[in-house]
């Protein structure tokens, strides 16, 4: 089931396009006008979240940000989770 959601943080809007199968995230694409350093790690984060149980997504994002020392000026890992959460609860 394909769904989209967005969240406007302090500096930037994050769009999440997701595909859910059962209780898992099958596909995810994050886009928007935010800054994310190192840039290429965003695509690694998307890979990491594939097949992740929805109840684990927030924690996975947090862990990824810490491990990879992600810097997102004026945004936190929670902002990215909020975009995904909004996609999850949106109508397909």
């Amino acid at each position: 089931m394909k769904k989209t959601g967005s969240h406007q943080g302090k500096k930037g809007t994050i769009y999440a396009e997701i595909e859910i199968e059962g209780e898992s995230l099958k596909k995810i694409k994050l886009s928007g006008d935010f800054f994310f350093y190192p840039e290429e790690k965003l695509f690694e984060l998307e890979e990491r979240l594939k097949n992740c149980n929805l109840s684990q997504v927030r924690e996975e994002i947090e862990k990824f940000f810490k491990k990879e020392k992600i810097q997102t000026p004026y945004l936190t890992s929670y902002d990215f989770w909020l975009a995904i959460e909004k996609a999850c609860i949106s109508n397909p």
Partner: peptide, 10 residues
């Protein structure tokens, strides 16, 4: 457009 942006959206 910015690196992470979706063209049709912006």
């Amino acid at each position: 457009i910015g690196y992470f942006q979706k063209l049709e959206q912006e």
